[in-house]
């Protein structure tokens, strides 16, 4: 099956506060932003906590484990692909693709694990595959 080309928007330093995420991704490490004031992790990463507006947020290593919250297989595309929201073991739910599997077997609640996939002209991005 043909591989879907994965695009990247802008450059890793387009948003300077987010550059550490892409630097880590390039090394194969998956980071999550968490707040040292209220203690909660959030997604997508921000410099200012979306729960308490504290600017004391820090990068933490994510476990890379999660479950499918919802998904959809885009049939009307040159190469069909599965888009999903995955709820991370670390708390937040993130948009991603489910890859390296038979899409017909996908279901909500399924356990998935992180795999980095290369992009065209950008750093690798976190995707997930069934455990």
């Amino acid at each position: 099956m043909a591989e879907k080309v994965v695009g990247f928007a802008g450059r890793p330093d387009s948003n300077p506060d987010i550059k550490p995420f892409w630097d880590a991704a390039t090394e194969g490490r998956f980071l999550i932003k968490a707040c040292t004031t209220c203690g909660r992790a959030h997604w997508y990463p921000r410099a200012v906590c979306p729960f308490c507006m504290s600017d004391r947020t820090e990068w933490r290593e994510g476990s890379g484990q999660g479950t499918i919250y919802s998904f959809s297989v885009m049939q009307r595309a040159p190469v069909p692909y599965a888009i999903a929201y995955v709820t991370l073991e670390d708390g937040p739910t993130m948009m991603t693709n489910i890859v390296d599997c038979d899409f017909s077997g996908l279901r909500i609640g399924q356990k998935v694990r992180l795999v980095f996939k290369p992009t065209e002209g950008g750093p690798p991005v976190p995707m997930f595959t069934p455990v």
């Binding site: 879907k4 994965v6 695009g7 990247f8 928007a9 802008g10 387009s14 948003n15 987010i18 892409w22 997604w43 997508y44 990463p45 885009m74 595309a77 692909y81 888009i83 993130m94 948009m95 991603t96 693709n97 992009t119 950008g122 991005v125 995707m127």
Partner: peptide
């Protein structure tokens, strides 16, 4: 955008 566009929403 950088956390969504790569997944082709």
């Amino acid at each position: 955008l950088q956390f969504e566009y790569p997944y082709s929403p």
